[in-house]
Amino acid sequence: MFEARLVEGSLLKKVMESIKDLLNEASWDCSGNGMCLQAMDSSHVALVSLMLKSDGFENYRCDRSISLGINLASMSKILKCASNDDIITIRAEDDADAITFMFESPKQDRVSDYEMKLMNLDTEHLGIPDTEYACVIKMPSGEFSRICRDLSVLGDSVIICCTKDGVRFSAKGDLGNGNIKLAQSANVDKEEEAVVVDMREAVTLTFSLRYLNFFTKAAPLSSQVSLSMSEDVPLMVEYKINDKEGDSKGYVRYYLAPKIED
């Protein structure tokens, strides 16, 4: 038996919105530690690694590890039937061919449940090496979304150049070129508005804006995003999943393979 109850159900709705445009289907691997999902997009350019920690749920029971194969578009549609303030419970029997979602209104005067068929997925699992990145950039998630959206006007790719002075995002195309430079925040009152660069070595890498724009769908989960880069390895874009009190409930990490000069 697997059962997980999340009082702040909107978090699960936001998690689904952050992956449903990038992935068609994926397995939720449920264990005592929590619910994990790892999957590549169909072009094998990007990888999503997602964790919802068991102690982030108000109630969590997982008698034995199970893998729930899910059509993510279907799950997203079902979760749209939950109100933002609903409590969401996910339930699956061992060896079941279906998963149940229960939505309770805060006053408990409306309870709905939806059963969804599970899929048999033969998913490939990749080992993500522990990496000491040359640069880690933290910035407001809304700022990163805006940069990706704005530079998409100019081209398909963004060159991210991180030095001790700050970060520069550049794009060029038929109509011209654009650059956005962010300086490190000297002193900010609010931590979530800060731009912080932790640099060991300067890095310049090129990435597809189409994928970065998919990643920014996770911005409602977190006020801050971190970009971790080293030469010639995939970029890691991380959004921490925090509840209203700011406690960590897990993360959504996206890995994006760089564009390499021929």
Binding site: H44, V45, G127, P234, Y255, A257, K259
Partner: peptide, 14 residues
Amino acid sequence: RASQSKIIEFFCSE
């Protein structure tokens, strides 16, 4: 012109 690499060129299958 830069070409897009694949994630499986960097991470191994487990």
